[in-house]
Amino acid sequence: MTVATLSGRARANVAFAPTDRGPPAQTPKPGAGAQISIRDLSKSFGSKKVLTSLDLTVPAGQFLAIVGRSGCGKSTLLRTLVRLEEPTSGAVMVGDGQRGVGRIMFQEPRLLPWQRVVDNVRVGLSKGLPTAESRAQAMDALREVGLADRAGDWPSVLSGGQKQRVALARALVSRPKLLALDEPLGALDALTRIEMQSLIERVWLEQKFTAVLVTHDVAEALALADRVVLIEDGRIALDVDVGLPRPRRRGSAEIGALEAQILDHLFSAGGRPSDDRPGLEPGPVEYEKAYA
């Protein structure tokens, strides 16, 4: 495992911010990150094993990216973090184990078409809040993603990128300690994608939550994450620290080198085309043959 040795000492220093060192240690600031510890996690759907005794610890405030082929179990792992899936065996602990610590952003915006933009953001807040208060917080979150002027619009008039920004505002409005991102940029065009990446990086730097990004795009993982984990056949095959300073320059030599090494590992170890689109990726298969 050559890449692991690259692990930079200079890991992004914001990662362990206030919870560890803040003076009033007994009251962690709302919005600060939650630590994740996963012990011996297995998940099966019927007879199909998706995750097999997986161990993973994510320190509070870290930006972790999970990469892997389609069907490798990376999304399932993410969904157990926000309790959309229950583990078949093993334990998943997020923060102090309370519900609602984490928020998830899906690949699709999943906005309620019958609610105005601001009310869609309010979905992320608890119902007990007075209306005026929750509207104010929702407007703050919309301002954060640059869409305050669209608060009164119906979601159907927004562009794809704007919808995902509303979904981001909805995920962030309750100041979660964990933000789970399930390939949220997969459906966006290249330029919007880069804008969204910067936006996510900016709010993460500001709010210091723990972020877990599932993606099939290794370059995206390296542009954003402190650490990249490669999942193969339901277990962790590679764990890389990315010690590059921020803001990272897209297409820099360091990123390129890391990307090449992760991709090499991906194609030499698995050696099979993606589950959900066999035959659609002739390139990678040939690449893999060259290394066989």
Binding site: R103, F106, L112, V123, K127
Partner: peptide, 24 residues
Amino acid sequence: QLVEMGRAYGMSSWGLFSRVVLPG
């Protein structure tokens, strides 16, 4: 997918019905 989103965002059964299922 909207129902799943509602569950992930902690909606109660009534909330899910009145805010997601019935309008849909």
